[in-house]
């Protein structure tokens, strides 16, 4: 698993497409798609096929809104895909929000990203479209 992390609009997806020479077919974007669609898609999938999960932070937000614990996601994702690139927004670098749910989202996303990074073979941080391998 490869984790790509960086701020909003930093060119993470473009970086991944160029570096890993992937088209649009295997990109799953959680800003517009949900976990059920991913599950349907992955059922018929050859497990070694490369897949890109974009905006995993949006999925975490949805899971939290549904009252679920996003940490369970990790096991699901890791068990289903051998060859996955996960792209996530860095969301913790700001003033702590007044709204409690916003605070929980930031904190949980940060912790989730730490777990992803721990399990990743490679972690790349993208700033201004430039990737820096940090693991």
């Amino acid at each position: 698993m490869i984790l790509v992390i960086g701020g909003y609009a930093q060119g993470k997806l473009e970086y991944v497409k160029e570096k890993y020479q992937t088209g649009g077919d295997d990109i799953f974007d959680f800003e517009v798609e949900d976990i059920a669609e991913l599950e349907r898609y992955s059922d018929g999938l050859f497990s070694d096929r490369q897949i890109i999960l974009n905006n995993i932070n949006s999925l975490i937000k949805k899971e939290l809104d549904d009252g679920k614990d996003p940490e369970e996601l990790l096991g699901n994702i890791l068990s289903k895909f051998n060859n996955v690139i996960i792209i996530t927004d860095e969301v913790g670098n700001g003033i702590v929000p007044i709204d409690k749910n916003e605070r929980i989202y930031r904190e949980k996303t940060g912790r989730f990203q730490c777990m992803l990074a721990q399990n990743a073979d490679e972690v790349i941080r993208v700033t201004c479209g430039v990737g820096q391998r940090i693991k």
């Binding site: 913790g92 670098n93 702590v96 904190e107 940060g110 912790r111 990203q113």
Partner: peptide, 8 residues
């Protein structure tokens, strides 16, 4: 140095 939940 780091953000919220960064593991700092």
């Amino acid at each position: 140095y780091g953000g919220s939940g960064s593991g700092k």
